[in-house]
């Protein structure tokens, strides 16, 4: 039982770390597009790690299948929502930050 606790806590901590990284990137990066990079990517792995941690904690059960399905849907949904925001920004002409520009 202790080993399971330790392993699942490690997964949850890693997931939380990547989520926090995404948030730091969201605040730190200079423009709209690079901010989408930070949130769009860190969220995917962070969410997978947190759900794997939950699976290990619960043990193999039929809840595991539901958690796996949530992960699979998120793998399709995450990129799609990122595209939608990126395209909306691109079409309406949000300026692109280049290296050497001033911070927006």
């Amino acid at each position: 039982m202790l080993a399971i606790d330790v392993i699942s806590t490690m997964f949850l901590a890693a997931g939380a770390f990547f989520m926090i990284t995404g948030t730091v990137g969201l605040l730190k990066f200079p423009d709209f597009y690079t901010r989408m990079h930070a949130t769009g990517k860190c969220d995917t792995l962070g969410q997978i790690l947190i759900i794997v941690g939950c699976m290990i904690y619960e043990g193999f059960d039929f809840i595991t299948i539901k958690l796996l399905l949530v992960t699979a849907f998120y793998l399709f949904m995450g990129p799609v929502s990122t595209h939608a925001l990126m395209k909306a920004g691109y079409v309406t002409g949000v300026p692109v930050w280049k290296k050497g520009d001033k911070r927006m």
Partner: peptide
């Protein structure tokens, strides 16, 4: 990808969009 963006967030790799 996540490792890459983590490095860029914490300034280990530069960004040049």
């Amino acid at each position: 990808a996540t490792i890459d963006i983590t490095k860029r967030v914490f300034g280990i790799l530069p960004i040049d969009p």
